[in-house]
Nucleic acid binder design. Structure first.
Lengths: 184, 184
DNA sequence: TATCAACATGTAAGAATCGACATGTCAAGT
DNA sequence: ACTTGACATGTCGATTCTTACATGTTGATA
């Protein structure tokens, strides 16, 4: 249902669009929050038209079909936004990897976390650049701010975890050294 | 592949387990980062045994089958943790909803954001309670801290968005009121 | 005029996941 | 003796999504 909502919203905001247009828009700033390829979009548009949420407004060159939102489509969109309960299940591979981190030897874990901190920083910079480009109060502005905050949290977490691991690595090295009787 | 990694990891950490055991474990603290039901787990265990990553170690009462990890399974797990690139695509309905927020009238958006802030706060409290229960440095500790930080970011974002919307609602009300010539 | 990039729409096979259906065992309490 | 809840394993159909296959048009540039 999320794909439906996204498509309805894009057409609602930008006016009648073709599958090709919508595919492009999914590659733009929307890509930060949801992905869909043309092979998913085209069949979905057909189903939505069959369900009366969209109608083919115009057929252009190269078989181009322009879909417009119907009253039923607007109702469906508004209902999804306000009444459909947000899916709680999040299946986030990054979270799973964080969970499994203790399975790795300390040094390896630190390596991966360093990379993760770097990746979060990069994404953050990307979003900041996007904000400069599109302005503070563009359509995706709320999502953009949210992404920034989550990326900051991610980076800070990774740095915290690295620090923690480094401390326990030091402690481990100490306890290994001490019993051998090596001078301080 | 993530399910495979999660199952291998659970068996690696807790030793030989049955599908039933693993299902239970997916309902525990792991549920915060990944979900899988028995209908997904049982067939996957069979496939993994067929692929040589696990072997049936023991058959108990009530048809219970206990799976143990093999050397190939350990190698696969370690490789996934260290060499398989983390899936970047995140399909997060909450992000999509944040993106589409401007489609709603201000008051309705504020309502939904208030609910979101509340939900993040609840989840945060849940994780804090879990930390108290299992201790600071339990197996899922890194993931737990990560969840806490992300939930804090989520709540703070929602509060920020509410504040922003309230300000623009006020401004809107002003501009409506002023032209009517009503006294201050 | 040839060719290339962008435009434009589809289908098909397979993986991951979910909710429902289906079946049966065993131990403990009533 | 009965019943209930926990133990225990599976299958099936529907949905979502990905990758690859497949086809054709149009405009611009070489």
């Amino acid at each position: 249902m999320s794909l439906r909502a996204a498509l309805l919203a894009l057409i609602e905001v930008a006016g009648p669009s073709s599958g090709y247009d919508l595919t492009k828009r999914f590659e733009g700033s929307l890509a930060h929050v949801w992905q869909a390829s043309h092979s998913q979009i085209y069949p979905e548009l057909n189903r939505m038209a069959a369900d009366g949420l969209l109608k083919v407004e115009e057929e252009g060159p190269r078989g181009r079909k322009t879909y417009a939102i119907t009253a039923a489509g607007q109702a469906e969109l508004y209902q999804w936004l306000t009444e459909v309960k947000t899916e709680q299940r999040v299946r986030d591979e990054a979270s799973l990897r964080a969970f499994l981190l203790p399975l790795l030897p300390g040094q390896k874990a630190i390596e991966l976390l360093t990379e993760r901190a770097r990746a979060a920083e990069t994404k953050k910079a990307e979003l900041e650049a996007l904000r400069l480009r599109v302005g503070e109060s563009s359509f995706g502005g709320f999502a953009l701010e949210r992404g920034l905050r989550h990326m900051t949290a991610e980076r800070d977490w990774a740095l915290w975890a690295i620090d923690r691991l480094q401390k326990s690595e030091e402690a481990r090295t100490e306890t290994v050294r001490t019993p051998t009787g090596e001078p301080e």
